[in-house]
């Protein structure tokens, strides 16, 4: 059953008089349990697509529905709540609040959801353990490596029990060994928690880990394949 549906998504940026068609009719479905890579050369529209699916940006045309909600109809405050409770985000870098420890960063999002303290403690610990940071929980972001920081970001993204996690080039700032390690952790959590992961990348080794690969070019889907 598909959770995310996009229908004829377009996004046009106007810079001065020049129009850029970042997305040009993107229609796709994403089903429960997917582990999907959005790939394509730089400027092909990956970030734009993820931002629109994540409710961070509005499309110029087309629809996005998540579950039975058409998120293009939601106002700013509704979207914020929707994101908090349905979507986990992992950005390319600087995901974390610098003055909070790894554990506090993970708990913070649950605090916004007003979860009970006991549940926050328990879930923060188990997620940080799952990403292999049980002994780094009390470190602040700057005391951790880039890979470790991204693992905390993944733990945070899952802490809110979202329907899906969006990760825009989560490995772009990591060396390939660390990148593969992060992908393995994401894949494991995808299985264990059953959370959908959608990530963009142009790293072939990362692409190899995905089960579905959607390729964009000039804002259009040019291929959509299941692998392994």
């Amino acid at each position: 059953m598909s959770i995310i549906k996009t229908q004829g998504l377009t996004k046009i940026y106007k810079e001065h008089t020049v129009e850029v068609r970042a997305l040009n009719g993107v229609t796709m479905d994403i089903a429960e349990g997917e582990f999907t890579a959005i790939v394509g050369p730089s400027g092909s529209g990956k970030t734009t697509l993820l931002n629109i699916i994540g409710g961070l940006d509005k499309p110029s045309g087309g629809q996005v529905s998540i579950g039975d909600v058409d998120i293009t109809d939601l106002n700013d405050n509704q979207l914020i709540d929707f994101r908090l409770n349905n979507i986990g985000f992992v950005f390319q870098a600087y995901n974390l609040i610098p003055v909070l420890t790894a554990r506090e960063n993970v708990e913070f999002i649950m605090l916004m959801q007003k979860r009970p303290k006991a549940e926050m403690d328990e879930r923060a610990e188990s997620l940080l353990k799952a990403v292999g940071l049980e002994d780094q929980m009390h470190k602040r972001p700057r005391e951790m490596s880039g890979g470790q920081q991204q693992r905390v970001a993944v733990a945070r993204a899952l802490a809110s029990k979202p329907k899906f996690v969006l990760a825009d080039e989560p490995t772009a700032n990591l060396d390939s060994k660390t990148a593969i390690n992060l992908l393995d952790i994401m894949a494991t959590l995808n299985k264990e928690e059953g959370t959908i992961f959608i990530f963009s990348t142009h790293d072939q080794k990362v692409i190899d880990r995905a089960r579905r690969v959607v390729t964009l070019e000039d804002g259009k889907i040019v291929s959509d394949v299941l692998q392994n």
């Binding site: 914020i80 994101r83 908090l84 999002i109 959801q113």
Partner: peptide, 16 residues
């Protein structure tokens, strides 16, 4: 600015 962007993205209300 960047940090504010992240926080609003992950679901923090602006006024909060």
């Amino acid at each position: 600015k960047y940090e504010y962007g992240v926080l609003i993205s992950i679901g923090m209300h602006r006024f909060k």
